[in-house]
C-alpha cells in the first residue's frame, strides 16, 4: 500500500468535533473527536451503544450537524449546510449502507438502485441502464425486477450496496451492514466491501462486532464520546477469528 501515490490524500478530517443534544438534560455525546481518514482507507468505528458512534456516523454522513470543531470531507468544509446543499453532498459524495437495508418496498431492485440518480435528474433510460450495471457488479442482475420482499437479507444488502455505489461517491458509510444478516451472508457482504476497498474506495464501517471490525485496516474505538484508541490492523486476515471464518 505504501506505493500508492494518493495514500496520504485526506478524505475525512475531523478536528475537535463536539456535539450536544439539547433537552431537559443536555446530553454531551461527542466530546472532541479528532479523526483523520485517508483516501482509500477501510476503517471501522467500534464502540458500545451510547458511546456516540452513531452520532459520529450521522455527522460524517451529513445527516446531522455538529456544535464545535471542523469537518472536511474531501477538502470540502461541511458545516451548517442548508438542507438543499446537504442533500446535494449526500447524493454526490456519500453512499449509505444501513443495517435495515432501507430499500423502498414498492420499487423493484433496479428502481431502488436507480433512485439516487433520479434525484440528480438523470434520464430514466440512462439511470436504469446504470442500475443494471451496478446490479451486475453485486451479482444480482437476474434479480433486477424482484421486489425487496422477494429477496433474501444478503441480497437486499447487496442491492443497497449497488444503490450506494451508483453515484460513484467519495466514501461509503456503512452502519452495522451485517447487523441483520446471518453469518454466511455477512461474509458475502464483507467480501463485497473488501473488494470495493481493493478498487480504491474509502469505506467507514460502524459496528459493534469485532469479527467485522477486524476485517478492516484501522479500528477506531470510541468510548463515552471520545476516541479511546486507534488500532492499526496490519493484516486483516490475521484477525482473531481467521480469514473467512464465522464472525459471530
Amino acid at each position: 500500500m505504501y506505493f500508492c501515490p494518493y495514500i496520504d490524500i485526506s478524505m475525512i478530517k475531523l478536528s475537535g468535533i463536539h456535539k450536544t443534544y439539547e433537552g431537559v438534560q443536555p446530553l454531551h455525546v461527542l466530546k472532541g473527536i479528532d479523526l483523520h481518514i485517508k483516501k482509500g482507507e477501510f476503517v471501522a468505528i467500534m464502540g458500545a451503544s451510547g458511546s456516540g458512534k452513531s452520532t459520529l456516523l450521522n455527522i460524517l454522513g451529513i445527516l446531522d450537524d455538529y456544535d464545535e470543531g471542523e469537518y472536511l470531507l474531501d477538502e470540502t468544509p461541511i458545516r451548517h449546510l442548508k438542507e438543499k446543499k446537504a442533500a446535494y453532498y449526500r447524493n454526490r459524495m456519500i453512499g449509505f449502507i444501513f443495517q435495515s437495508f432501507n430499500l423502498i418496498a414498492f420499487k423493484d431492485a433496479m428502481e431502488n438502485v436507480a433512485l439516487p440518480l433520479f434525484y440528480q435528474g438523470v434520464s430514466r433510460r440512462k439511470r436504469n441502464e446504470l442500475a443494471m450495471q451496478y446490479l451486475e457488479k453485486v451479482g444480482l442482475r437476474d434479480w433486477a425486477h424482484h421486489y425487496p420482499n422477494e429477496l433474501s437479507g444478503g441480497q437486499k444488502q447487496r442491492v443497497a450496496i449497488a444503490r450506494a455505489l451508483i453515484t460513484q461517491p467519495r466514501i461509503i458509510l456503512a452502519d452495522e451492514p451485517t447487523g441483520a444478516l446471518d453469518s454466511r451472508t455477512s461474509v458475502e457482504v464483507m467480501e463485497l466491501l473488501k473488494a470495493l476497498h481493493r478498487q480504491g474506495m474509502t469505506i467507514v464501517v460502524v459496528t459493534h462486532e469485532s469479527g467485522v471490525a477486524y476485517q478492516t485496516q484501522k479500528i477506531v474505538h470510541i468510548k463515552d464520546g471520545l476516541i479511546e484508541r486507534i488500532e492499526d490492523n496490519v493484516d486483516p486476515s490475521a484477525s482473531p477469528f481467521g480469514n473467512g471464518s464465522v464472525m459471530k
Binding site: 438543499k84 442533500a87 449526500r90 432501507n102
Partner: peptide, 16 residues
C-alpha cells in the same frame, strides 16, 4: 416517514 427519510438520505432535497 421511513421511506421519505431514505429518499432524503440518498439525496432528495426538501423541494423534491
Amino acid at each position: 416517514t421511513t421511506e421519505i427519510g431514505i429518499r432524503r438520505a440518498i439525496g432528495a432535497t426538501p423541494a423534491d
